[in-house]
Design a protein around this nucleic acid. Structure first.
Lengths: 186, 186
DNA sequence: TTCAAATTAGAGTCATCACTCAAATATCGA
DNA sequence: TCGATATTTGAGTGATGACTCTAATTTGAA
C-alpha cells in the first residue's frame, strides 16, 4: 500500500464495508458483497487486508471514535453539548451509527476483542457524561452522578437503536426530551 | 408431529434455538449448532420444521409476546406496572431478552417480514404506554403523550440492550430511574 | 398384536463462505 | 526509460452453510 491506487482501493473497500454493515448487519457483510460493492476482486482485498475481520475492525474503530468527537474538548463540555454531539452522530453519520449499533449487539457476542473494546468505550463515555453532570450539578454525590450518566448513555443508545430501525424516528427530539428529564412530569 | 416424541424434540430444538440466538446472535445460529445442542440430527430437524427460518421466527414471536405480557390487562395497567413488567422480562427471561434485542438489530435488516412484525409490535407497545400516561396525567395533550411514551419505550430498550451486553448492569434501577424522570434534576 | 404413519438416522447435494496463488499489469523513484 | 515493487486478475481451495433423501426404527390406535 505505497501507491496512490492502493490507498484509493483501500478507501473504497472501507466505504463498502461501512455501508454494508449499516445496511445488512454483520451477517450480510461477506467478502463477495464487499468486493462487489467496492468494485474490487478478492485478490485485491487480500492484498490490502489480512482478513475480513481486519476490515470490519477498522470500520468499527471509526464508529466508536465518531461517537465521542472532539477529545481535546474533554473536561469542558456541557451535558447538552454531549447530547447534541450524539444527535449529530446519529443523524448525520447514520452509516457509522448503524455500524455502532450492529456491533454493540452482534459483534460483542462472539468476539471478545470487540466486546472489551466496546465496554471500555462505554465506560469512558459514562465518565465523560458524569463529569459534565458534576460541573453543572456539583451537589449530586459521585455515586448518583455516575448512575445518572449511565442511565442517560444507555437510554440514548436506545434512541439510536430505534433510529437505525426507523429512519423517520425523530432521534433529536427524543434525545433532548431525555436530557430535559421531561419524560414524565414529576 | 403427532406423537409425544415429536413434540419433545420440537421443544428441545426451540430451546436450543432460543439459547443460541441469545448467546451467539443470529450469525452463530446454524442448523448444525442447533442440532448439536438439541441432540438431534438434521433429518429430525427438517422433519419438524420447514426451514431454519421457521424455527427462528417461532422463537422471535415468543420473545415479542413476552415483552408485553398479560394482554387482557390492557387498558388498566399503570406506567409503573408496565416498566416493572419489562424489568422482569429483561432480568428473568434473559434468553428471550437476548433474542428480542438481537432481532431488533440484526433481524430486521434483511428480513422485511421480521422488520414489519417488530415495528408493529413497537407501535402497540407505545400505544399501551401512552394509554397509561393518559390515565395518570390526563392534562398532557395527546401528541406530547405519545411522544413521551415513545421516548420511554426506546430508552428502556437501550437499558435492555446494555443489560444484554453486560449482565452485571443493574437494569431494574436504571429503568426505574427513567420512569421517575430522575435522570437530571430540573 | 399389527401396521400405517411418525420419527430418526446419517450420508449426500449444491451453494457459498473466507481465503490463496501464480501470472499479468500498473506504478513511480532513480 | 528502466526495473523493482505494488497492485490487479480471476480461477481455485477446503470448510461449512442450509437442506434432501432413503432406509431403519419407533409409536400408538384399532
Amino acid at each position: 500500500m505505497r501507491y496512490k491506487a492502493g490507498l484509493e482501493t483501500r478507501d473504497r473497500i472501507l466505504d463498502a464495508t461501512r455501508r454494508l454493515i449499516a445496511e445488512a448487519g454483520l451477517e450480510g457483510t461477506t467478502i463477495k458483497a464487499i468486493c462487489d460493492r467496492a468494485e474490487v476482486l478478492p485478490g485485491s482485498f487480500y492484498n490490502l487486508f489480512d482478513s475480513k475481520e481486519q476490515a470490519i475492525v477498522t470500520v468499527v474503530r471509526e464508529a466508536i471514535e465518531a461517537v465521542d468527537p472532539d477529545p481535546e474538548h474533554l473536561g469542558k463540555d456541557t451535558l447538552a453539548a454531549l447530547v447534541e454531539a450524539y444527535i449529530v452522530f446519529i443523524t448525520e453519520q447514520s452509516d457509522l451509527a448503524g455500524v455502532y449499533i450492529a456491533i454493540a449487539v452482534s459483534g460483542t457476542r462472539n468476539n471478545p476483542d470487540l466486546r472489551e473494546r466496546f465496554l471500555r468505550h462505554h465506560e469512558r463515555r459514562v465518565t465523560r457524561f458524569a463529569a459534565a453532570i458534576e460541573r453543572e450539578h456539583p451537589e449530586i454525590e459521585a455515586g448518583a452522578r455516575s448512575r445518572r450518566a449511565e442511565t442517560l448513555v444507555s437510554a440514548l443508545n436506545g434512541i439510536a437503536l430505534h433510529r437505525v430501525l426507523d429512519p423517520r424516528f425523530d432521534a433529536a427530539a427524543h434525545s433532548r426530551a431525555l436530557l430535559n428529564g421531561a419524560l414524565i412530569p414529576l
